[in-house]
């Protein structure tokens, strides 16, 4: 009787969490859809002019902004994070790992405003002095985001690497491979799907980050032409203007949120797909794999 009650209560709580999520989705779509309809999806996505007061809503500069900043963040964060994960999972002595892994996880808990602050105080002036431009820029945002996504990527990558059976490593070592050859030729390929998932989740994090980006990106609504140009991301667009927006302007911001929502959802499903996918046993050309996936889907 009591157990049933507890179970019911827990179920309610669990479902309410999902319910809130569903409500948010419905709300965003309801608020944003009219503007999308009025402006036209194509014009809204690819329009170059964002003049909310004149009723012109084109978010192309922000889409480009989010994209380049995210790519930049990945270019900086992924190699460092993967290298770090390899060292921690494979090479470091257990004691060092026991110390470093929690430290890195702690890094994920630092508020983003602190990262942004470091960017404003240290990085932005440095860029202005040494590379030119106003300072707040694609580069600054990429560097800060690259650092911010590292804990996510490192954590998941370590789990993926440690999930590779010890037998693979021993088999390889017993065949005369060195430690590094074993990592490169056996462990990394076997952990590939987990590593891909780690990168995609890091990408989602970079795409969704707002505060740190606002502080260092410059936020001007223009398609950037150099990495020292200021840039505005989709998230920054919403956060900066929501405070004073009303009417169609507010709805356009909700529509921006829809776009962001769809992109992040797509990335997350991609990540879980990469994780769940059975490991490839043999190498097949990409097009054959795609064909195989299609035919499996059709069945």
């Amino acid at each position: 009787m009591r157990a049933a009650l507890v179970r019911r209560a827990l179920q309610m709580i669990a479902f309410s969490a999902i319910g809130v999520l569903a409500l948010i989705t419905v709300f965003i779509v309801r608020e944003g859809a009219p503007v999308l309809y009025k402006t036209g999806v194509g014009h809204f996505l690819f329009g170059g002019a964002w003049r909310p007061l004149e009723g012109e809503f084109g978010i192309w500069p922000m889409i480009v902004g989010s994209t380049v900043v995210t790519i930049g963040a990945l270019a900086i964060g992924v190699p460092l994070a993967l290298a770090c994960a390899i060292v921690l999972a494979e090479l470091a002595p257990p004691r060092a790992r026991a110390l470093l892994k929690p430290t890195i996880e702690l890094l994920a808990g630092i508020p983003s405003v602190v990262y942004g602050f470091m960017g404003v105080v240290l990085l932005v002036p440095w860029i202005r002095e040494h590379l030119g431009g106003p300072g707040p820029s694609v580069l600054a945002a990429s560097v800060i985001l690259g650092i911010m996504i590292m804990p996510t990527i490192i954590g998941i990558s370590i789990d993926a690497l440690q999930a590779v059976p010890r037998s693979y490593r021993e088999g390889s070592r017993a065949l005369g491979a060195t430690e590094w050859q074993t990592i490169r030729m056996v462990v990394l390929p076997a952990a590939r799907s987990g590593l891909v998932a780690a990168v995609i989740l890091g990408m989602g994090r970079a795409l969704g980050e707002t505060m740190a980006v606002i502080m260092v990106a410059g936020n001007s609504v223009r398609v950037p032409h150099a990495i020292t140009d200021p840039v505005r991301t989709l998230t920054a667009n919403i956060a900066l203007e929501m405070g004073y927006a009303s009417g169609d302007h507010a709805r356009a911001l909700f529509a921006t949120a829809i776009v962001l929502f769809v992109i992040v959802m797509a990335l997350n499903s991609l990540a879980s797909l990469a994780r769940r996918r059975p490991r490839r046993r043999t190498r097949r050309p990409l097009w054959r794999r795609a064909l195989g996936a299609l035919s499996r889907g059709a069945r």
Binding site: S167, Y168, G171, A174, T282
Partner: peptide, 27 residues
């Protein structure tokens, strides 16, 4: 590395690498 080549080892549970038969052999 030389020792491991001169002294081969086979483990209790079969441990092929997740590759093709050919690739396992030429590894």
């Amino acid at each position: 590395a030389q020792l491991r080549r001169r002294v081969g080892m086979v483990f209790a549970s079969p441990q092929p690498l997740p590759r093709s038969i050919y690739e396992n052999l030429v590894f």
